[in-house]
Design a protein around this nucleic acid. Structure first.
Lengths: 192, 192
DNA sequence: AACCTAACAGACAGATCTGTCTACCTGCAA
DNA sequence: TTGCAGGTAGACAGATCTGTCTGTTAGGTT
């Protein structure tokens, strides 16, 4: 029972390497051989932890989900206790992400572009987007929006648009416009 | 001088095949061998018209640009003579696109996800997004928006978000929410 | 009839990709 | 001391990918 923690060091190294390479270059563009070399692991070890490349891809998306969801929640929380402010504040996470060196768009949208509907990878992407939409909807409900569903839709649309554009346009105008629009939509949707 | 039209039949067949396959399966997922077999063309003919695969990819994006821009303009025009209405009406093209069988998101965002910044393919994507933004901006100016630049940004954000989400969520709610939000933003930006 | 252009047909080279398999090593626990 | 779990090292198979090259065929022009 002592076993040095199930998440072995080798596995962690592989995942860390994949995280960086998949995001920076795309999933298909990165072969398992490169990940193996870069993470200094034996091939057999790689295939022991991830029986197929797609298993690693899904694990990579799990990791991205954790990171991005955390940033979204942190930005919302930083905006104060008012749910309406939180809905707007969450867009600060977008600005921060786009400004980051090596930003290359939304990992999920990118993964979806490289996978076919019905595969585990594609499903993982859909699950992520659904989870974000659900979370924003509860925030919209708490903010007392007249139509929380459609406000949540609009805000996630804005968010996805910003995520996608951020990699095509270096200017910070997109995140700014996204936040400003979010503010306008939230105000309109919660006005007495 | 009679030459059966410079855009030869073989070239057209290749491009047509690439258009369908690249969009449906992704660029990296489709090899030139498949395009050659599917379009019933000889390998030498293929490489005569497109010296490298990337040349075909750029031609594919040119074609998508023509089609999508046309649909956007048609939708705007169909909304009537008022520029403000046209800004909203353009979102009908989004709904139509998402509803289409085999819809798989924005070909440009997808291509960007599979290419590196600085390549011809990536540049073509940026050029497309810039062109759309410019066009929306002139519409916003004609509509008398207080800040045409930022209204155009917001609307293209909404558009890109809808384009990206459309492939992850079969429901027609995303395009509907996009149009409704666009309406609200246009009204707010042009109100006296 | 001679010629030329565009296209067809397909072998081939060389790289790369995923996944399997054998063999060896090391540290710990019974 | 024995056994085992987890790791290292790397050859190998089989598929697939881009791009080149040789040779043939068909149609139109001069």
């Amino acid at each position: 029972m002592t076993t040095t923690a199930r998440p072995s060091a080798a596995r962690e190294r592989i995942l860390e390497t994949a995280f960086a390479l998949f995001y920076a270059r795309g999933i298909r563009a990165v072969g398992v051989d490169l990940i193996i070399a870069e993470s200094g692991v034996a091939k057999a070890t790689f295939y022991k932890h991830f029986p197929a490349k797609d298993d690693l891809v899904v694990a990579y998306l799990d990791k991205v989900d954790g990171v991005w969801t955390g940033q979204l929640e942190a930005a919302a929380e930083a905006a104060g206790p008012d749910p309406a402010d939180q809905l707007v504040g969450l867009f600060d996470a977008l600005g921060t992400a786009c400004r980051r060196e090596g930003y290359r768009g939304c990992a999920f949208i990118n993964a979806a572009a490289e996978s076919q509907p019905g595969t585990a990878v594609h499903d993982r992407t859909v699950a992520h987007k659904t989870a974000v939409l659900d979370w924003v909807r509860t925030l919209a409900e708490r903010a007392g929006a007249r139509d929380p569903e459609s406000l949540a839709r609009s805000l996630t649309l804005l968010l996805d648009g910003g995520l996608a554009s951020g990699s095509l346009d270096a200017s910070p105008d997109a995140p700014k416009a996204a936040k400003a629009s979010a503010q306008a939509l939230v105000e309109a949707a919660t006005a007495a």
